[in-house]
Amino acid sequence: MKNSIWKKPGSIAEAYWQHGHADFPVYDMHGHMGSHYAIYFKRCEPADVVAHLKRAGVKRLVFSHHEVLWGGLRNQKAYEMCRQFPEHLRMYVGINPHFPEYIREDLAKFEQWAPYAVGLKFLAGYHKIAVNDKAYQYALDFAQERGLPVLNHTWGGCPFNGGPIMLEVAQKYPEAKFFMGHSIYGDWEYARKVVTESPGNVWLELTAIPGERGIIEMLVEAVGSERILYGTDMPWFDEFQGIGGVLSAKISEDDMRNILYRNAERILGENW
């Protein structure tokens, strides 16, 4: 243990090992809230989630509510949750293309929901409508006009949010900021292409990747750590597991800082 990464004096890994946090805030850019049909969650409501964030030194979680994405709740509910925990919670306005009237009504409130609403969330692989379909046009125009982040669930080979579609959309809406949730998992060549062949408006997001041996290293090599954001799918994945996955990747501490907080601050500012 004594020569391990956890014992390197003054390192981020040592700080986390000893204290459970470091000298910077972590921003988790991919979260959810509420129960989910496919899993048992003991901790999925705001109070428990925020308690977990605090333990792990996570300053902000940006989430979309599961039930909003399924069409059972409206984004107003997520806004109310953020107001209960203004220091830790921010929201993506969940977009379900099967409910076009909800999209227009909820986006009309976007400014009212400041500063909690910071962007939009698409889950095309579950909603079974491709992101380049006209069903998303209103929301994409909205994000384009305001330069908003759009967190997309992306997955390699998916006909709804796979690499080619995401590259096409990122090129078509150059002012919107596209966060590629799960980094187009498994299609690492397209993970590289969506960043390098888009007009500077794409970031890869790491949910489900930290801990996978060698993947973060490969993505940093391919696109640079300035283009990678940290996320966990909270309440799906433990923050210490996710942060541990970043800290145990064989990358520089500068890269770790970019991923865990600097890039989010570059996009959204230091006080958002």
């Binding site: 210490f240 597991q241 800290l247 145990s248």
Partner: peptide, 18 residues
């Protein structure tokens, strides 16, 4: 879960699990 996963992520998770 090596070699799919590395050792470190699970170690930090366990250390701070409460």
């Amino acid at each position: 879960g090596l070699p799919r996963y590395n050792h470190g992520n699970g170690m930090l998770q366990l250390r701070h699990n409460g």
